[in-house]
Design a protein around this nucleic acid. Structure first.
Length: 424
RNA sequence: GUGGACGUAGCUCAGCUGGUAGAGCGCAGGAUUGUGGUUCCUGUGGUCGUGGGUUCGAUCCCCAUCGUCCACCCCA
């Protein structure tokens, strides 16, 4: 047997049995964003490799070892986007959208060459929100509020909001020195990973999951204690806003970011129900990025949400929507009935927008067609056989509820269906 | 990139200390030749992930490889 083609490792087909949950979540997201006055933007999946190096940071794991980068036929260095913010900022600068505040959202596949595991895939989908030109904590608060609303609308339980402030770059630099000094004083107790990061990315040491380091890290100097007045006020205002809106949160002084462009507010929505990949949604402020990519200095804040993880949570909590089964399954037996069926079905669709009508194809007797009707999940079977054609009627049989099969004259069918099946 | 577990029918799995494979579900048909869902019957199904090795003989043992899952790491 010749080897059958397989999907690329870490890249999954989303099958018909799964698309209803996806569609449900995507519809909620779209409605949510419309409700808050955000506009959709769509960017290419490919960008110049340099864009990601300049934004995400040269020494991050993403850029160093996880990007799908290649040269195209012109020899240009291209990369399948590993996240959405960089491309969104690029698009905004390129099209001059930043002369006024912008509230944007997008959605689509992202690519990172990581070892696949639960909640982590090489092609995955992110929903992202970015707000530009708004420097204050009010917009930070809005982003958190709208994410909290999403969990409520989906019915999700068990998500915890973690919050921190990374301060301004100067404040972070001072803190960084103190942290390094502290960690070096305890270097003998650190694990190999942490010692390596001590110089490359010391803030990330705080992220370590190694329980042996808990005491050392617990005693480390705290970033929050190194904030300047303005940074502190920004953070306090955000917290006050969350309090006022009744959103509970946990201040997590060790919450940092893997991407270089973040400052001030950072937050994560975390769950313990998805195994090791517990972050469902994460974001923060990145006031420096627009200028860093060649635009005018523009404050910015955003977050990204992992759709696979959200889908997994929705399923884990049994919140999947019921599938949209047909209202009607048209059973047509015999040559004459089969020939009439498409015309009758189209005429019903013309007169009854919103009708979900599946027409049987492929012939067969009543028995097999009814079997298909049942499998389709349809509420009723609409039946056309020789008898019905002769009498100018259609049979209508309930498949999900008690009740006898009845005959309805073809000309009365639209009105009848409108009232009894569509309920209007 | 590192570690562990696991690859048998479309799906979920069984298969004893090595003797070339089974079940349930699904799918198709039938039990009333104009009626599904329950029940019963019949049928459809697999080079046991792939390639080597050991053996008279390998789904089973050994090696390699690919893949899946979980964790580390990383992150959404």
């Amino acid at each position: 047997m010749s080897p059958r083609p397989r999907a690329i490792r870490g890249m999954h087909d989303i099958l018909p049995s799964e698309t209803p949950v996806w569609g449900h979540i995507e519809a909620r997201l779209r409605a949510l964003m419309e409700g808050y006055g955000y506009a959709e933007i769509r960017m290419p999946i490919l960008e110049q490799t340099d864009l990601f190096k300049r934004s995400i940071g040269e020494v991050t794991d993403i850029v160093e070892k996880e990007m799908y980068s290649f040269q195209d036929r012109n020899g240009d260095g291209l990369t399948l986007r590993p996240e959405g913010t960089a491309g969104c900022v690029r698009a905004c600068i390129e099209h001059g959208l930043l002369d006024r505040p912008q509230r944007l959202w997008y959605q689509g596949p992202m690519f990172r060459h990581e070892r696949p595991q639960k909640g982590r895939y090489r092609q995955f989908h992110q929903f992202g929100v970015e707000a530009f030109g708004l420097p204050g904590p009010d917009i930070d608060l809005e982003l958190i509020l709208l994410s909290a609303r999403l969990w409520r609308e989906l019915g999700l339980q068990g998500l915890e909001l973690q919050l921190n402030s990374l301060g301004r770059a100067e404040e972070r630099a001072v803190y960084r020195e103190r942290l390094v000094a502290y960690l070096q004083a305890h270097a003998t107790d650190l694990d190999a990973d942490s010692r390596r990061r001590l110089h490359s990315n010391p803030l990330r040491v705080l992220d370590s999951k190694n329980p042996a380091l808990a005491d050392i890290l617990g005693g480390a100097p705290r970033l929050l204690d190194h904030l300047g007045g303005e940074s502190r006020a920004h953070f306090d205002a955000l917290c006050a806003g969350l309090d006022a809106c009744g959103v509970s949160y946990r201040i997590e002084p060790r919450l940092v970011r893997g991407l270089d462009y973040y400052g001030l507010t950072v937050f994560e929505w975390v769950t313990d129900r998805l195994g090791a990949q517990g972050t469902v949604c994460a974001g923060g402020r990145y006031d420096g990025l627009v200028a860093q990519l060649g635009g005018r200095p523009t404050p910015a804040v955003g977050f990204a949400l992992g759709l696979e993880r959200l889908v997994a949570l929705v399923r884990e909590q049994g919140l999947e929507p019921p599938p949209a089964a047909p209202h009607l399954y048209l059973v047509a037996v015999g040559g004459a009935a089969q020939a009439q069926a498409p015309r009758i079905a189209e005429s019903l669709r013309d007169r009854l927008p919103g009708l979900r009508l599946q027409v049987h194809c492929g012939g067969g007797g009543f028995k097999s067609q009814f079997k298909k009707a049942d499998r389709s999940g349809a509420a009723h079977a609409l039946i056309l056989g020789e008898d019905e054609l002769e009498r100018g009627v259609a049979g209508l049989k309930p498949l999900r509820a008690e009740g006898e099969q009845i005959q309805v004259p073809l000309e009365d069918l639209p009105a009848w269906l409108r009232e009894r099946i569509l309920g209007r």
